[in-house]
């Protein structure tokens, strides 16, 4: 089974930046349906800097690179997204310290640690209609493939993207329990959570970047992916 290299992680970060910048206004518009409409802009402010600085940052190890990215997020991303995404990158960095490649088992550990950090920071759980509703099933899928020793990383990525996309429809009807959308009561029901849409869009774009064939079906993805 092929390992995931620092080059792969860099490509994933670069693609994420492209996704976030391309969808800056779309994500903010989604946020405006039940929230305050700052999600796309807040995230894009940070990823614009990450996109510009990525070629020059320390790539001696995956951990070092991700730590630097978490610092850029802490410095430039405001709103809820700063502490959430910053914590995620920092926790993933801590378990990939000194590593130039990671196995699927190690990648699952990175993602799992990041997700646990995000849960601790924001206090949200599965079903609260936040980006965790996409990240938790993705993590579970990743852990299952890691445990099974799946060799086809493309298949793993595709199935993770499926989980994230499924989360859009699975949570659409829920009332938000966390984040600013929670403060409008039942009115958040019926609108997709922008954090969940962002995770699903990023994973779909990763599929495209890494040559994994996958056709999205949810309208939010059909509209926004490349």
């Amino acid at each position: 089974m092929a390992d995931i290299t620092i080059g792969d992680v860099e490509r994933a970060v670069k693609t994420t930046a492209t996704t976030v910048l391309r969808n800056e206004h779309y994500f903010s518009d989604l946020d405006g349906l039940a929230g305050d409409g700052d999600f796309g802009t807040s995230l894009a402010t940070g990823f614009r800097v990450i996109d510009a600085e990525l070629p020059g940052i320390d790539k001696s190890a995956i951990g070092a690179m991700l730590l630097k990215i978490s610092m850029l997020v802490s410095k430039h991303v405001g709103g809820s997204s700063g502490p959430i995404w910053g914590t995620g990158f920092m926790k993933a960095a801590m378990v990939s310290k000194g590593k130039e490649t990671v196995t699927l088992v190690e990648l699952a550990d990175m993602v799992n640690t990041a997700v646990e950090g995000i849960m601790a920071r924001g206090g949200a759980q599965l079903g609260d209609k936040t980006l965790l509703d996409a990240l938790i099933p993705v993590t579970e899928k990743l852990k299952a493939h890691a445990a099974a020793g799946t060799a086809d990383l493309g298949l793993v990525l595709k199935e993770c993207a499926d989980e994230a996309e499924n989360a859009i429809d699975a949570t659409r009807g829920l009332v938000a329990h966390r984040g600013r959308a929670s403060q409008v009561g039942d009115r958040s029901a019926g609108t997709p959570d922008p954090g969940i849409v962002a995770i699903a869009t990023i994973l779909q774009d990763w599929c495209t970047e890494f040559g994994v064939e996958r056709t999205p079906t949810v309208p939010e993805l059909l509209k926004q992916t490349v």
Partner: peptide, 12 residues
């Protein structure tokens, strides 16, 4: 100050 309607970054 953060951006309009967005909390300031942690560093600030």
């Amino acid at each position: 100050q953060g951006a309009v309607f967005a909390a300031p970054p942690v560093d600030a």
